[in-house]
Nucleic acid binder design. Structure first.
Length: 88
DNA sequence: CGTATGACGTGCA
DNA sequence: GTGCACGCCATAC
């Protein structure tokens, strides 16, 4: 898992999040780890915050302490989506 | 270039 | 359970 082909960290984050199966969740720390930098958890949040691509299920990314975190389309929407997928 | 931002994580009171 | 301080890092400006 290295930064090949000039891929930016954000692009790797998008890839990882896209692979999250329906009905499951991942933590920001997990995404950061898979993206290549386990300490960039904060950057992951920053990146997903600016992402508006619907093909990326960023609502399945939650915090490590069990809370949902945030969502660029409203935290209510995020919770509703997760409940609908029975991810929580 | 330097500074600010933020959907985090941990520790502690 | 709550709240705060600090560290941490890719981006935006």
């Amino acid at each position: 898992m290295l930064y090949t082909m000039q891929q930016t960290f954000s692009q790797r984050v998008y890839e990882v999040v896209r692979t999250i199966p329906r009905g499951e969740t991942r933590t920001y720390a997990y995404v950061a780890l898979c993206a290549g930098n386990s300490r960039a958890v904060r950057a992951v949040g920053n990146i997903l915050h600016k992402n508006y691509d619907p093909s990326i299920p960023c609502h399945r990314v939650i915090r490590s302490d069990g809370r949902l975190g945030g969502y660029n389309r409203g935290i209510q929407n995020k919770r509703r989506l997760l409940l609908k997928e029975r991810a929580i």
